[in-house]
Amino acid sequence: MDALFTSTLTVTLAEMGDKTQLLSLLLVTRLQKPWQIIAGILIATLLNHGISAWFGSWISQFLTSDMGQTIINTSFIAVGLWLLIPDKDDAPNTSLDKYGAFVVSLVLFFIAEIGDKTQIATVVLAAQYQSFLWVTMGTTLGMLLANVPVVFAGNYIMQRIPFSLTRVFAAVVFIAIGLYGFF
């Protein structure tokens, strides 16, 4: 259950102010189909984070030594520091709109997550906990907790949450997990 809780918490926090939240806001503003957008987010995240968690679980077999644990803990700290760098707003391609809200959301979210902080965090969490299922469930839940409110109340929420403070809090959580692993 630690894997589920930690994965959910860290990804929820890491997503605050992330480009995928901005993507959620753009999609709901443009397409006006919240349930299709949420379904696209869910499937894209399950696929992307499932692959990432599988890779993290697989690679953990090679990281069982002290050196491996050092790499994992250092990765947590690195992701925490990375969280301090704000994301750029990458506007979606309007030529995809003809495929419908579900397909557009699925494709854009899957692509947006490639190499993103939360994808890297998913690999690291799966390597740490050696749990494909719980990490995939946790990171997917975290992604939904961060993005579904934006889909339903985007403009209202985006004007009231200080994303810079949330980003710093998320960075502290990642760094603390990394430091905890060293001690």
Rank of each mutant, 00 (worst) to 15 (best):
N73F: 12
A121F: 01
Q69F: 08
S75K: 05
I77H: 04
V79R: 02
T70H: 09
L4D: 07
L165P: 00
L26E: 11
A101F: 02
L96W: 14
S105D: 09
G56Q: 07
A176G: 09
F5P: 03
V151D: 04
G100E: 11
L84G: 08
T10P: 00
S57V: 01
G40T: 03
V151T: 06
I85W: 12
K33T: 08
A176N: 06
Q119T: 10
S164T: 11
I77R: 07
T166N: 07
L125P: 00
A146N: 06
P162N: 15
Q130A: 12
F55H: 00
L81N: 06
G80T: 11
L83V: 08
L27N: 02
F76N: 04
K98S: 14
V11P: 01
S105Q: 04
I111A: 15
T122Y: 01
A153E: 10
A53N: 06
R160V: 07
P162H: 15
S60T: 11
S95M: 07
M158K: 14
I71S: 07
A171P: 03
I157F: 14
A14V: 03
L27Q: 12
Q69E: 13
L4I: 06
W35H: 14
K19W: 02
I51T: 07
L42I: 11
P162Q: 15
T29N: 12
N155D: 14
L46V: 11
D66N: 12
T166F: 15
T118P: 01
Y99P: 03
E15I: 09
F163L: 09
L165T: 08
S57R: 00
V104F: 11
W54F: 14
S7G: 15
T29C: 04
D66T: 13
V173G: 02
A3W: 03
F174Q: 04
V103D: 05
